[in-house]
Structure formats: C-alpha cells, structure tokens
Design a binder for these strands. Structure first.
Length: 462
RNA sequence: GUGGCCAUGGUGUAGUGGUAACACAGCAGAUUGUGGCUCUGCUAUCACCGGUUCAAAUCCGGUUGGCCACCCCA
C-alpha cells in the first residue's frame, strides 16, 4: 500500500564518483491523507446522491464554506478547552500575517456564514447541508484520517424540539437507506446552567473515589468532569453505574424539550437508546445530543458513524444575535468503509455499446460516431488509442458492453457499420447513418429497465 | 501525545542465513478484421541506512512509513 517511503526522498547515499544519473524520487502521501481512487468512486457517488436526495426532499439547501477560516472562529466556537482546539488544528500564519485554520468541523463555519450574510432576515429556520473535507491533526487510525469528509446538516433559527427530531431522523434515514441498520443514542445535556450544577454533583461523586482513577481521568475530573463518562476504563465504567445522571439535573424546559424530541422520534419510528452518559466533545452543545451507531457492529466502543445535537448558545458566542440551532455531521469515510466491509455493492458505471475501429479511416468515423451516440444518450465506451481489433474486443467484453460497433476500412467505403451482439455472438451490417435508431430499438427490446437507471430519485424518508 | 504489531513485484502472499517463489491484475504475443477459455513471454536493486557473517529478504541497531489500540472524535 505504501510503497513510497519518505526516506527515499532523503539523503542520497554517498556514491563516490557514481554517475549522476538519478531519477527524481517519487512523493508519498502526507500523513493521514489518502487518495480516493476510481475503484472507490462508486461508493462515494452513491453516498453523495443519497445525501443530496434526502436533503432536497427535506428542503435543505447546499452550502459550501471555505476550508480556511480565521483561527479565532474555532477557538471561540468549538471551545478553547476542547481537544480539537488544543492540539488537533491545522493552523498557520499566512504570508500576509493572518492566523488561519483548516476547518476541523463545519458548524462554526456555517454559523459564521449565517451571521456574515445576515441570514436572520430570511424566513426562519434556515436549513442547510454540506458535504466537505475536514482537517484534524490526530494520529491516524482505523476510521480516522487527518483529512476526512463529512456530510451534515444545520437548521438555524428555530428552537422547537421537532427540529432536533427531524435531524436525528434524517441522519438515521441516510444510513438506513444505504443499508446500514443504525440506532440513535440520545441524551440531553440541558442548558449551561443545569450542566454546571450537574458537573458539581459529578465531581462530588467521583472525588472520594479519585485514587481509583487513572492519571488521565484525574485530570479530566478537574478540567472537564463530564468527559469521565465516556472513559473506557473498566473501573470508571463500574463507578459510573451509581453516578448521578444529567437527566435528574435538567431544568423544566430542557426536560420538556427532551421529552418532546423522544415523542417525535417514537412517532416517526426512529429506533433510539437513551444514553444517560452520552456527552459530546464540543463545547457548544445544549439540550439534545445524539450519536449514530451501527447495530451490526460487534464492538460497542467502535467509532460513531455520525453525531449531532442542539447548540442554542453558539451563535451568540460568535457575535451574532441569539439564535437557536441544531445539526448533525456524518463521517463519510467511515460509512464507506462500513458499506465495503458489509459487501454492499455500489452501482458501477455501465456502458451499453462499445465502438471499435480499424485503420485510420475507421478511427475517424468511429470518433464521430461515438460523439453521435453520446448526444443520443447512449452510454458508450471506446479504446481509440488501440489499433488491434482483438484488444478492442477484449475491452468491450471487460466493460460489459452489450453491443460492439465495428468500423473498418470496408465499412467506411460502404457507409455501414457492424453491430455485434456480445451475448449472442452474432453480428449484422447496418447503415451507418441509422446507427442510433438501430441501437435504440435494440436497447428498448432487450433491457428496457436499464433506461430508467439512475434517474430515479432516492425515496423520500418515511 | 502514549503503547503494541508490521514493512517481499500493481494487489494478496510464500520464503527464518546460501542464486526471490506463487496467485491475481497489467502489458506483449500464439499467420497481420473480432471478446469471454487456453498457452507463452515480460514486470522486485526484498522500505532506507548501517552492522554481524565467506554469505542477509532472513540476525542486530537506527531511520522512515504503515496498521492497531489508548486519548479524542466523524
């Protein structure tokens, strides 16, 4: 996989009076990045089309924000104490002296755009979706890259619980339609006020037991006690059982909001599990938080496929007017790898016709005929650079063409073309001018269903 | 940031001190105008640097890179 090693680019071994014939060393990949090769594109296309169809049906509009933002946006938006901001950002100073960061997530950017473009003047809520690469300087691991893709949605300017439920529904439905049996883990972390009270209770609970905590967890107890709740340390998991739960510390309005979210989810049939210890790593969340997990995944601790929640305070933190909002983000890379390991095939590009040519005259005609077929909407393949008919037939066969058109010198003179049926192994000579009609007729007879492929929009949810 | 495992053609592997093997893929060919089968040939200075040895893919050290787990998250 990694044939190119950085060391190859390093010091050239001392070769006394060796001839200076050294080919340039090839480059490797920047750590944590990778190429998404043609062989994987069918999966990516499938996911993108699913996302687009779903968002379209739900009245969400596509937004694209810059990869680069002012560093301060994330420091304030995501939170100064978070892991992301503390040590995972790709930040640098530009030649002009600006401090910029390659976005580690989308929500802060989208709130910035909302404020910057005065979107509060639009009908509320503003419903947006994105599909973009994100960057975090973490150590690469399974399902974790430094450049990774997220598909997500944000609904801005509405506080009602129905929005939270709808977002959970859309993210769940996205996975469901792709064939992944997912469940929503959901919790409420209330307002900053009730959370502060809860944190005190948590600290009070854990402090007497602190000698049983690891060094890391001791730090968490001081700095961010809620993070203790998703520790994988068996001792902590055991202690957690008796620990206070945030639900008991929610104020009336948060509790009511949460109940309504759950009722909506019941109504619409989204399976969820209450997880009293689900907290999320970003500071901006309020009230509803949720994550999506694959039910078929054995390892419960395995990576989440997506997550989201409400962030009613974020807009104000970023200097906008108080605006309630909620959203989710899905890990495209993780979902693709899930689909692959589940052996869920993505549709491959198929061609109906292959255009083969012989000789310079045949090649000219074939070039033109290929274009004619394309304009007629007939999916075709070619290998004009190849001279041998045999090689071209091999290509036609491999590409799965149902028919191959052959144009050689003889056909050019006669104004004809050979149409070979690749399944039957038979062929006929037709008038070159009528090639489109002939093929369309054949296609209609043989595989009428193939014509409708890929023009069917994804089924709307629920 | 911490720890464990690993590094052989494009891909997946065999080879544990004595001339680098196999499968698949790719390319070329089997009387120059026809595919799916078959056959033949070609495709690797064994990540890099150094050490031990008569001899290293194989042992040792370093470097680089990858994978996995923790941390955190998507």
């Amino acid at each position: 996989m990694n044939k190119i090693h950085k060391s190859n680019t390093g010091a050239v071994p001392k070769k006394t009076d060796a001839p200076a014939k050294k080919s340039p060393q090839p480059f490797g990949l920047v750590r944590g990045t990778r190429d998404i090769l043609p062989i994987d594109q069918s999966y990516w296309r499938k996911l993108y089309e699913e996302a687009e169809g779903l968002c379209d049906a739900y009245g969400l509009e596509r937004i694209e924000t810059p990869v680069l933002e002012e560093t301060g946006l994330f420091v304030r938006g995501v939170g100064k104490g978070t892991e992301i901001v503390e040590k995972e950002m790709f930040s640098f100073e530009t030649a002009g002296g600006d401090n910029v960061t390659m976005r580690p997530e989308a929500t802060a950017s989208i709130c910035r755009a909302y404020i910057y473009h005065g979107m509060w003047n639009q009908p509320q809520p503003v419903k947006l979706w994105y599909w973009s690469p994100m960057f975090r300087h973490e150590r690469p691991q399974s399902g974790r890259y430094r450049e990774f893709w997220q598909f997500g949605a944000e609904i801005l300017g509405e506080e009602d619980a129905v929005i939270d439920a709808q977002l959970a529904l859309i993210s769940w439905r996205f996975l469901k339609d792709l064939g992944i049996d997912a469940a929503v883990r959901i919790n409420s972390i209330g307002t900053p006020e009730c959370r502060a009270n809860y944190k005190n209770a948590l600290v009070a609970y854990f402090r007497p037991k602190r000698n049983r905590l690891s060094e890391d967890d001791k730090k968490k107890l001081l700095k961010n006690p809620m993070r203790l709740l998703d520790s994988k340390d068996p001792a902590v998991i055991e202690m957690k059982a008796e620990a206070p739960q945030i639900v008991d510390w929610l104020d009336e309005s948060s509790k009511n909001h949460f109940m309504r979210v759950l009722e909506y989810l019941d109504e619409v049939g989204v399976p969820y599990q209450l997880d009293p210890f689900l907290v999320r790593g970003l500071d901006y969340y309020t009230k509803t938080v949720f994550e999506l997990y694959d039910n078929a995944e054995e390892d419960v601790n395995k990576n989440a496929l997506g997550g989201g929640g409400r962030y009613d305070g974020l807009m104000e933190i970023l200097g906008g007017r108080p605006t309630p909002a909620a959203g989710f983000g899905m890990g495209i890379d993780r979902i693709v790898s899930r689909l692959k390991s589940m052996n869920i095939a993505a549709p491959q590009r198929k061609i109906d016709v292959f255009v083969a040519q012989l000789g310079e005259g045949g090649r000219k005609k074939a070039l033109a005929m290929f274009e004619e077929l394309r304009l007629a909407g007939i999916k075709s393949g070619e290998a004009f650079a190849k001279g041998s008919i045999k090689t071209q037939m091999e290509f036609a066969n491999r590409a799965g063409a149902r028919w191959t058109i052959i144009i050689g010198q003889k056909e050019v003179l006669d104004g004809t073309a050979i149409v070979r049926d690749m399944d039957a192994g038979t062929q006929e000579i037709v008038d070159a001018r009528k090639i489109v009609q002939v093929l369309q007729k054949k296609m209609a007879q043989v595989q009428p269903e193939s014509i409708t492929i890929s023009t069917v929009p994804p089924t709307p949810a629920v």
